[in-house]
């Protein structure tokens, strides 16, 4: 395949970026999108030009590193697929493809297509855990958990933290990401003792990091490579409402 690429190049966070055009040829339709980028970079490097920087690691859709907006859609046109798992057979020979970084204020560009997503780590640090010291746990089968609850928690826990939900949202809201972790932990009996303070703190951190509000467009769910459902946001809103009332009366555990 022969392709025209329009790629966002930006030297560093302080610099202005711009779209630059490239051409690649002899791309196998069985190669992945990132392998196509590898070949472009190999051409650039052999000419002594600087390679296009992009985040990637596992290349099997689970680490959540890759973060490309392809033709305007985070992770590209294929539903429930990360950019690293997107294959060139889904594009046409001769097509022009635009490639941009996540576009959201809380994720500043570091270079080219690489953005800083450390705000997500901060959200988790503010409550995305169950406090349990190594060695203090009881037997794993001591608390039976109904299968449907365990399955729901797993649906939520499947989030890979890539940030596509934020990139797709016109408000740059991180509600889907935050609610996935809140829903996982608040659903399980082990997570109940910290349920209220968890949701209050995580939402607060999310707001402080500059993520916008949710206005129910559902773009996040549409682009999520792991198909995390909007139900998670509904669950978080419920938990948040209950916790806020308790907070008002000073009864948050």
């Amino acid at each position: 395949m022969k392709l025209k690429l329009r790629i966002w190049r930006q030297e560093s966070s302080g610099c202005k970026g711009r779209m630059v055009e490239y051409e690649v040829d002899n791309i196998s339709e069985n190669s992945s999108f990132l392998e196509m980028m590898d070949l472009l970079n190999e051409d650039l490097v052999s000419e002594g030009k600087e390679a296009v920087a992009f985040d990637h690691d596992c290349r099997e859709g689970i680490c959540g590193s890759c973060s490309l907006t392809i033709n305007g859609i985070p992770h590209g046109p294929q539903k429930a697929t990360t950019a690293c798992q997107l294959h060139m057979r889904h594009f046409d020979d001769g097509q022009t493809i635009s490639i941009e970084p996540w576009n959201a204020r809380p994720f500043p560009v570091i270079k080219d297509l690489v953005v800083n997503r450390s705000a997500f780590d901060k959200i988790i640090q503010s409550g995305g855990y169950i406090s349990v010291r190594a060695g203090s746990a009881q037997d794993a089968n001591a608390i039976p958990i109904p299968k449907q609850d365990a399955d729901f928690a797993m649906d939520a826990a499947a989030c890979i933290g890539c940030g596509a939900c934020v990139a797709a949202c016109k408000n740059a809201s991180a509600m889907l990401f935050t609610s996935a972790k809140v829903s996982q932990l608040n659903t399980l009996p082990q997570g109940k003792p910290e349920k209220d303070r968890r949701v209050l703190n995580m939402v607060k951190t999310m707001d402080q990091a500059g993520f916008g509000n949710c206005t129910n467009y559902g773009e996040c769910e549409a682009v999520c490579p792991k198909e995390i459902s909007l139900d998670m946001i509904a669950k978080m809103n419920r938990d948040y409402a209950v916790a806020s009332v308790k907070n008002f009366f000073g009864t948050v555990a």
Partner: peptide, 11 residues
């Protein structure tokens, strides 16, 4: 035991 206590959603 440790992982279940952390909220790892095992099958």
């Amino acid at each position: 035991d440790q992982c279940v206590a952390q909220g790892v959603p095992f099958a």
